[in-house]
């Protein structure tokens, strides 16, 4: 617990060109330099930091926090493994293929992602990350981009664990042939899940029942991605020869990712106004 304020301190001042973590104590109070004036110069740059720099700083903060606390990713991975076991018993099958395999994989990843989404903004809400971002002279959309990028990375790590486990535990056909195409589909799914999840998480985190509201809003919004991904994955995970071209479905997911990315980018600022 005592690590957390320190973590914020070394995350946030990275936005500034000369962020020296020691200095903010001397901030508005008294003169900091010999004349009082010169010391203010570097800490109040005339041009605010550019968006990529801010996004990288925030992303670095996210990953650092996750590495230090291990709050989301291990939980998501463990959840996906338990879900496979539950599916095995619920369906009473030792191996699945085709439609069923795609559905199980997708549902598991979606729900595991939901766990991560629920945690995504909690630390910022509880420990002042939002306030810090609002105080900094930076574009607020940086937070959306950084969080979505962090969420994408979490999901990729989750899949590195979950997909081989799925191939080992449940999948009837071999994973090897399907893997290159599967990676493409899952990459698009990850981006969509991360963008929509970040947006919904930001919407839900200030509500009283955030663990309930988040998934309630996110699941209907994710239905088009689930449709496209399960249709695209089904032929990949069947034992027969890969016949159907999944390009149509990949296009659908990609387009949906793009449109929702733009919508989220357009309205995200309004979620961070106070």
């Amino acid at each position: 617990m005592s690590v957390q304020p320190a973590r914020r301190l070394d995350g946030e001042p990275d936005n500034r060109p000369h962020g020296s973590p020691g200095e903010p104590h001397a901030g508005p109070g008294g003169p900091t330099g010999p004349g009082g004036e010169p010391a203010r110069g570097p800490r109040h740059p005339k041009t605010p930091p550019r968006l990529p720099a801010v996004v990288m700083a925030l992303l670095r903060k996210e990953l650092l926090v996750e590495l230090r606390t291990l709050e989301s990713v291990p939980g998501m991975a463990l959840f996906s493994l338990s879900t496979f076991v539950v599916f095995h018993f619920a369906l009473n099958r030792s191996s699945v293929e085709g439609d069923l395999a795609a559905g199980i994989l997708l549902v598991t990843l979606l729900f595991a992602g939901m766990l991560g989404i629920n945690r995504l903004f909690v630390a910022d809400e509880e420990q002042g990350g939002f306030d810090a971002l609002l105080l900094a002279p930076v574009d607020r959309s940086a937070m959306l981009i950084a969080k979505a990028a962090a969420m994408t990375i979490y999901l990729v790590v989750l899949e590195i664990v979950a997909v081989p486990a799925f191939g080992l535990l449940l999948l009837g056909s071999s994973l090897g042939n399907a893997l290159p195409d599967l990676i493409g589909v899952l990459a698009l799914v990850d981006v969509g899940l991360a963008v929509i999840g970040t947006f919904v998480a930001a919407l839900a985190v200030k509500t009283r029942a955030r663990d309930l509201i988040g998934p309630l809003i996110a699941l209907p919004l994710l239905v088009p991605i689930a449709i496209g991904a399960s249709r695209a994955c089904a032929p990949l995970l069947s034992s027969g020869p890969h016949t159907g071209s999944g390009v149509r479905w990949l296009l659908l997911i990609g387009l949906y990712d793009l449109v929702f990315g733009l919508i989220a980018y357009a309205v995200f600022d309004f979620l961070l106004e106070d």
């Binding site: 509500t207 029942a209 509201i213 809003i217």
Partner: peptide, 11 residues
């Protein structure tokens, strides 16, 4: 259908 719960849970 989640619109009303969303509104309801913001004070």
């Amino acid at each position: 259908a989640t619109y009303q719960p969303l509104r309801f849970s913001i004070e």
